[in-house]
Design a protein around this nucleic acid. Sequence first.
DNA 1: TTGACGACCGACCGATCGGTCGGTAGATCC
DNA 2: GGATCTACCGACCGATCGGTCGGTCGTCAA
Lengths: 216, 216
Amino acid sequence: MRAQATDTSARDRILDAAEALFARRGFAGVGMSEIAEVVGSSKSTVFHHFPAKAQLHAAVVERILREIEAALLRALAAGGTPVERLDRWVDALTDLLGARPAHARLLLRSLFEDDELSGALAEERAADATLRRLIGGASDLLREGMASGALRVANIPHTLQTLIGMSIYHFASGDFGAELLGRPLFAPAEVRRRKDAIKSILHHGLLAPTAPRKGS
Amino acid sequence: MRAQATDTSARDRILDAAEALFARRGFAGVGMSEIAEVVGSSKSTVFHHFPAKAQLHAAVVERILREIEAALLRALAAGGTPVERLDRWVDALTDLLGARPAHARLLLRSLFEDDELSGALAEERAADATLRRLIGGASDLLREGMASGALRVANIPHTLQTLIGMSIYHFASGDFGAELLGRPLFAPAEVRRRKDAIKSILHHGLLAPTAPRKGS
DNA sequence: TTGACGACCGACCGATCGGTCGGTAGATCC
DNA sequence: GGATCTACCGACCGATCGGTCGGTCGTCAA
């Protein structure tokens, strides 16, 4: 029991350290010895828990995707109109990314990196399946909303990309985003503002409600 | 003359190769010898043109930012209402990112990476100044549009983040985005669709024009 | 003709990379 | 009281990393 607890927490501590480091400097920018140092163990111990660096990275990504999927399923379970569900989808994703600073950045990075690292790894294929379910669910939501007349008819993949870009990019934008905002990205008030900003654009667009005459 | 032409093109060829490689695998993921190999010269030659890897990377970023600034200034120069200028701003940025596949990804990556690499380098400070001018110009455009009543009053930094996320993220999303779309991100028809998708959301939001009754 | 110069290169440097190996300490099972 | 298993570690491996150094070659001015 005690041994198992130590085991689990050691593995999780490695995943935590790796997530933070990979998010900050990317796959190639982080050494296994550095991860071990943060965890407080030796490099050999890290290799004892994960067979290779690539597997460790894949495990980190997989954990994040599962967490996001759980949050989104929870948000959609309550039902409601497509618009209500879309709003809750945005709220849940924004809240989660706002609560876990490393998530957005690591996700975006892994999006870039696994282009060539096409997954022969089991962990990668599992993460890929989760990701596919995630975007499938969001696609269905959009499709249903458009079919029911609640949402404007639009190109669904492009709309999805817009949704992802608005939420994930923002929380991955680091110092640049913080400087733009003038305050930390992950401050609770700013996370709330992000949710409002996204939903406001989705609901109303950027133009003023009554078309104003130009020039005045 | 001939010598100078050779010189210039050699430097540019290094920048081109470095841009493609850095975009694909990130700063830490690319070796100087690899860049040299792509260029067709030796590593020493690369170091002859750029004093260090960090400077080469900064020079690549700076070149991209200058190109973007030129395109956006060109787009805004024609004048018009704030909405017209915003549309042209989106068009110009989308066209440029769609024409240069490495740009968006490298830009997003460098956004992540220079958090700690805070620039003591001259190239980095130059790029930073260009970036600041870029977002300053966009901020002014939004502010003017809101003041004139043409645009809905909104949080400007968050709106800026949304604009960036919608355009840059999309063209940086690589294989994931291509699979989502079902066709290459950079195909001319798809770039056109991206412009329409962005402007459609900015103009109208995602909701249907007349609020429909739910359930039917 | 010579001397300075810029472009370029091969060979080399110490450090670090991902990963392996042999072994130790402690708990568990029979 | 062995035998086994798991967590963990230090020492080590070949390869590659960013970067340096000494030198060659062609061009051009004096």
